[in-house]
């Protein structure tokens, strides 16, 4: 069976305004330049076999994006060095923070990821007001949100997908340039349907404005235990990029 590599990478700074498709193309070009041999899809219009899992909304940042690449040759012997060399090939703001060879039995990101964690900066409300509204949302049996699919509008209940929601210490990292802002931390499930950060914030009131959304983690839950898609240790070559956040924002 063809070997698969899983990458974890960031999307920070100006590049957050590019779309998921744009990021896919950036990766395709970078991997082509890297010389890594990626398997191609079958069919009329063969494409490199890359899978990105959970889409990140345009405009959101992330510390934890994942990419699975199916290889047509053996993986590079020194994964850490290879991942380091990708840094020069990817645009500023996309930075590889870990890479590992997937066990054959591993499922796809799309199948396996069950939830993700967010940090959300919001404007327009005071911290105490926001806390009240968060409490109200969590107490509600259902939270209706209007969505459009295939040209029709639906009312969906987003409450089942909100695993947790709360304020982050108000003293933390408020941007003085756009005061007053508050930070929320949320964990949202991917099933039955995912929740967009904007929808979640709008459910707190039409006067609450989402200023910035940052995905901090993705989670795979299995038999009651939760882990990240790229487990630390084992086959993983961790590539540290401690300054990525500061550099790109």
């Amino acid at each position: 069976m063809a070997e698969r590599l899983r990458f974890r990478f960031t999307k920070l700074g100006k590049i957050r305004f590019t779309s998921q498709r744009d990021v896919a193309r950036m990766w395709e070009r970078a991997l082509r330049r890297s010389g890594l041999e990626i398997a191609l899809s079958q069919g009329f219009n063969p494409r490199p076999l890359l899978a990105f899992g959970l889409a990140l909304p345009t405009g959101a940042e992330s510390l934890a994006e994942y990419l699975d690449a199916t290889l047509s040759a053996v993986p590079p012997s020194d994964l850490a060095e290879f991942a380091g060399s990708l840094g020069a090939l990817l645009p500023e703001g996309l930075e590889v923070s870990a890479v590992g060879v997937l066990p054959d039995a591993a499922g796809s990101l799309q199948q396996e990821v069950t939830s993700c964690s967010w940090e959300l900066e919001v404007l327009g409300v005071t911290a105490s007001d926001l806390a009240t509204r968060v409490g109200r949302l969590l107490d509600a049996p259902s939270v209706s949100v209007r969505r459009e699919r295939k040209g029709r509008t639906f009312d969906d209940d987003l409450r089942p997908s909100v695993r947790s929601l709360g304020l982050i210490d108000p003293a933390r990292g408020a941007d003085p340039a756009r005061s007053p802002s508050c930070w929320l931390r949320a964990e949202t499930a991917t099933r039955p349907r995912g929740v967009r950060p904007r929808e979640l914030v709008e459910a707190l009131g039409t006067d609450v404005v989402l200023a910035r959304a940052r995905r901090t983690q993705q989670w795979i839950e299995h038999d009651g235990t939760r882990r990240e898609p790229l487990p630390v240790g084992g086959h993983v070559a961790a590539v540290t990029a401690p300054h990525a956040v500061e550099r790109a924002s």
Binding site: K14, I15, F17, T18, S19, D22, T58, G59, P91, E92, G93, A177, R178, L210, A211
Partner: peptide, 23 residues
């Protein structure tokens, strides 16, 4: 940029305005 960035959440195809092209 600090005045442009807040506008980009509300417009179509915001990547048109960020630059950052390789080369």
């Amino acid at each position: 940029w600090p005045s442009i960035e807040p506008l980009l959440d509300g417009v179509s195809k915001p990547a048109r305005y960020i630059g950052g092209e390789q080369g």
